[in-house]
Each structure stands twice: as C-alpha cells, then as structure tokens.
Design a protein around this nucleic acid. Structure first.
Lengths: 120, 120
DNA sequence: CAGAATCCATTCGGATACTG
DNA sequence: CAGTATCCGAATGGATTCTG
C-alpha cells in the first residue's frame, strides 16, 4: 500500500468519525466551555472566583453550569474543602488536560484573529 | 530572563486573551460549525450535497446557516457556477484552513472518546 | 466564598415547503 | 442541485436573589 492511499484511507476514517462526535462536541459548544477548560488547565488548582475574574463576561450561573457539566464529563475534578470560608478547587483530569492541550492552538488562533479582521 | 519566567509570562498573556475571544468562538460554538470546517478542509472543493451526506444529522437549514456564517467570516469561500443543474463549491480560505488544522486534533480526540466513556 | 434556585428573553436549530 | 423562507418548540444563558 502506498503512502498516498494510506493518507486517503485515514482521511476517510476521519470523515466517517466527524458525523458521530455528538456528546462531547455539544458540551464544548456551550458558551465558555472551551475557555473554562483552558483557563483551568493554565491555572489549576483553580477557584471559582479566579474563573470569574478571568472570564468576566460569563455570568455566575453560566460558569457554574459549565463547571458542573465538565466535571460530570470527567474533564475536570472538583474538590471541596470544608473550611470557613468555603474553598473549592478545580483541577484537570488526565482526559481534560489532553483536550485542553488540543484546544489551546484553537483559542490562540482565535485570540490572534481578534482585531485582525475588520468586522463591523 | 529565565525560561521559567518567560513561560509564566506567556501563560499570563494567554489568560489575558481568553476573556476576549468573543466573535469567533461564538461562531465555532454553533452546532456543527467545527465539523463543517473540518469536513470541507478534508474534502474541498466541497458541494452542499456532500456536506449533507457527511453530516447527516445536520438539517439543511442548519448547514446552510453555518456555511453562510463561515463564509461571511472568511473562513471559507463559496463559488457558484451558473450551470444546469446548479453547482456550488466551498473551499477553505487560508485562514479557515489554518483554523481547521488546529481543530483537527480536537475532533479526533472527540472521536476517540466516543464509546470510550460509558455514557447513558 | 461558592454556588443553587428561579425566572425569563433570546437564540438556536429542526421540520417542512417552496424556488431558480 | 442548492439552497431560501417560514414557523415553532426546545434549549440556552443572563440577571437576580438567596444560602451553607
């Protein structure tokens, strides 16, 4: 088998996959989901308050929802310390970390593009 | 300056960016947007019909909407040939292609994860 | 501090039908 | 073939208020 046909085959495999990404992609498509992942990945252990400061446009409830979803999907871990005042920390799971690394180039691209394109 | 402090600085830069990704991320967060980008990137020039076959879960109107948005954001180009029957082809712009390449690892990860995680 | 709960406007996306 | 137009229910996210 030639390299070329191998390349074609793997392209076909990828394509076949693209139609069945369901669950995870829906999760990632929710507002700030990718940002949350990358911010936690870059600052872990991360507290709720930090997240709010780093993503000021996101509302408390949205952030909270995203955190729950990502934790339930085992992309990140939530650890609660019963102190006063209460403290909660979020950290990446191995899976979440892997995803965040792959997400980074995308968000960086998005960051560079801001302002680059003249948008009305 | 040490490598370490450089790393910290760039981490800070990245973080500062994550709060201002607005527009593009909203675009990418719409349903099937990332898939469309990657499918076109892998099959260009791509016709509407192909897209529908490769992403059968997406409705005509959703696909159409996504294509419009991505074209308007100059992530892909739309070329219309006035033949009978009509033919339209979508291709990546340089920008879109760059993004699609960065998106690929993410979608691949998503593909591998399907079935891997016991989801109800 | 770290959310949970509630309420609501808006958006999104699917189905369907129609067009050049 | 390649959409567009319309309609509508479902889901989403923001604001606000309250709690352990």
């Amino acid at each position: 088998m030639t390299d070329e046909s191998k390349a074609l085959e793997s392209a076909a495999d990828e394509l076949a996959c693209y139609c069945r990404l369901g669950g995870v992609m829906d999760l990632l498509s929710r507002k700030y989901a990718m940002q949350v992942l990358c911010v936690v990945n870059a600052t872990e252990p991360t507290r709720f308050r930090e997240l709010e400061e780093l993503l000021p446009d996101a509302s408390t409830s949205t952030l909270s929802a995203r955190l729950d979803e990502l934790a339930e999907a085992r992309l990140l871990d939530r650890t609660q310390y019963d102190e006063i005042p209460p403290r909660v920390e979020y950290e990446m799971t191995a899976d979440g970390s892997e995803l965040a690394e792959r997400l980074k180039p995308v968000l960086e691209w998005a960051g560079e593009r801001e302002g680059t394109t003249g948008e009305a």
